[in-house]
Design a protein around this nucleic acid. Sequence first.
DNA 1: CCACTTACTTCCATTTTGCAAGTGACTAGA
DNA 2: TCTAGTCACTTGCAAAATGGAAGTAAGTGG
Lengths: 126, 126
Amino acid sequence: MSNNDENKGEACHRSRCPVSCLLELIGDKWTLLVVRDLLFDKHTFKELQSSPEKIPTNILADRLKRLEHSGLVRREQYQERPKRYAYHLTEKGQDLNPVMESMILWSNKHIPETYKLEDILNLGSE
Amino acid sequence: MSNNDENKGEACHRSRCPVSCLLELIGDKWTLLVVRDLLFDKHTFKELQSSPEKIPTNILADRLKRLEHSGLVRREQYQERPKRYAYHLTEKGQDLNPVMESMILWSNKHIPETYKLEDILNLGSE
DNA sequence: CCACTTACTTCCATTTTGCAAGTGACTAGA
DNA sequence: TCTAGTCACTTGCAAAATGGAAGTAAGTGG
């Protein structure tokens, strides 16, 4: 990361459309799954890696870096020796909750067999 | 559409997570922009092509096919000679509106200079 | 006939993905 | 001390996806 990269949180946008701009941050098959897991109290690399969709580790590392760079996620050391890191959503990241919720509602209506919100919470505590 | 195509709207999912399943349909940088345009009354290939993000034509054709295949979009001929086609959202596709709205709210809050909903509607009528 | 339009398709170099294997730092046990 | 194991990644590489440009098919209008 050079100095030039840092002054703007983001690179130049394709347009000023809010949908387009958000898609530049989360527009792919994996990023929102990471956000989902962070919302549902998974915080270490290991925990994020072990989700049922089986995200490849290089993709996970990349997405965490991007999310951190775009200010949605904060990486913090939770242990000194050996050094271990945990990832947490910033407020900006947590604000994606309504997006996530509307997506869940859509899928529950249109894709049979998808887990309801309660199912997800129950699964998490098993 | 044959009977065979219909029973499988989709291939096998990565998981039964509603977020993951929806991402298999719209999880990329372009698909939701097409849905956005269809929501905002753009219906021909030409119109969709001319959005400010400048989607490549091969990607647009591919995304329209996928959206049609997953039942979010319907392709219909609106003119006989020469044959011309228009794309419209099905009810399933229109139901993505709340997702779109929550995304717009997020961007308006967190990304400066993004258009508000009114701005978008005004631009459309110019 | 020629230019022009719409709705795509094809070609191909570059980029991104996805899988497997490897690395570095450390701990705990024989 | 040697060995195995854990966590948090990184690296290598083949395969797939993307993006830009050019081409094509089917028409219209002059």
